[in-house]
């Protein structure tokens, strides 16, 4: 394989691996920008992946699977919202709880319903999202480099992949160019001011949490119905936490979120590529180091050595209306 091919394969893997991160990190962006910390991204994604895989298998429809994934994820998001907005509970504790409930429930229900050791039945045909081939692939195929780049990097991905990348500018537009976005960000910085303006803080925060649930639903559906053909026990494997790390790494900004997710996805792809291949000068880099790198980078960032990550001011603080 020449270097061009290697680069192409790695970049394609980067895109494939970063899509769930982008969706989950954008989900976290909506929630955290409104002042609701969410370390339950992992749990929501996992539950959505299971619901999507299960519903798609039972109804033989990828679309119904996606709907089920979103519905379940939004339900969990509402539990988090109820605990942290209405009951003014600790948001971290609530997120931890949701992660555990999701890990346990997906296995127990999966085993009870399908009896395949926590898997859902194999998806295929109508029940799974297929890769989309964009037009002109054949026309461009003869052009060196551009043809290959077009065929494997731009074309040939799942619908949800294009959706994820489209959500980046869309999220930016919603957060920075709409009244809803302004209020959402204001609720995360200074809820008292928003309240004074006669806007319900509670309502805004619930809406933000629902947005978060919807996007996590997409992320879960991508895992179990597009990349893989069915749900596998614990298939998120810490992606929710990497997304959280990416969100912090991106300093809570939509375009940065995409770049951070692409970076972490690239590190993941690189780890797979470099397995067993020594590098010049350094020698063989342990796989484990590559796997830990996103977390190490985030800690270094948090320590303030690569700029400063300042979270939304009112993040994690329940709002108590004065009376």
């Amino acid at each position: 394989m020449d270097y061009f091919q290697i680069a192409l394969v790695t970049l394609e893997a980067t895109i494939r691996l970063s899509v769930p991160l982008i969706l989950a990190a954008l989900a976290g962006l909506f929630s955290e920008r409104a002042g609701i910390f969410d370390i339950g991204l992992e749990g929501k994604m996992l539950a959505a992946a299971f619901a999507g895989g299960a519903a798609a298998a039972v109804y033989d429809s990828a679309f119904l699977g996606l709907l089920a994934a979103i519905a379940v994820s939004v339900c969990l998001a509402l539990v988090h919202g109820y605990a942290s907005i209405t009951q003014r509970g600790n948001q971290i504790v609530s997120g931890v709880a949701i992660n555990f409930i999701a890990i346990g429930a997906t296995v127990i229900l999966g085993q009870a319903w399908f009896r395949q050791g926590g898997r859902t039945p194999q998806l295929g045909g109508d029940s799974r999202f297929e890769a989309v081939t964009l037009p002109f692939v054949d026309t461009l195929a003869d052009i060196p480099y551009i043809g290959d780049i077009y065929a494997s990097l731009i074309s040939g991905h799942f619908l949800l992949t294009y959706f994820a990348f489209a959500m980046v500018p869309f999220s930016w537009w919603v957060l920075y160019r709409t009244r809803f976005g302004l209020r959402l960000r204001a609720v995360g910085e200074n809820p008292g001011a928003v309240d004074t303006a006669g806007i319900s803080v509670t309502r805004m925060r619930y809406l933000a949490v629902i947005c978060c649930g919807i996007l996590c639903g997409f992320a879960g559906a991508y895992l179990s119905m597009a990349v893989a053909a069915g749900f596998v026990k614990g298939m998120t494997a810490g992606k929710g936490f990497i997304a959280l790390a990416a969100l912090i790494f991106a300093k809570w900004k939509p375009v940065n979120v995409m770049l951070a997710c692409l970076l972490f996805g690239f590190l993941d792809a690189l780890a797979i590529l470099m397995q067993g291949r020594p590098l010049p000068l350094i020698g063989e880099v342990p796989v484990q180091f590559m796997q830990a790198l996103p977390y190490i980078l985030t800690v270094i960032l948090l320590a303030g050595f690569i700029g400063k990550a300042i979270p939304p001011k009112a993040g994690g603080v329940p709002y108590v209306k004065e009376r």
């Binding site: 600790n90 504790v93 931890v96 709880a97 949701i98 409930i101 890990i103 346990g104 127990i108």
Partner: peptide, 17 residues
């Protein structure tokens, strides 16, 4: 895995709620 669910529920009801 049932224990994991119970663990989550205990954290939810004894902690966040």
């Amino acid at each position: 895995d049932m224990i994991t669910i119970i663990q989550g529920l205990v954290i939810l009801f004894a902690g966040a709620l």
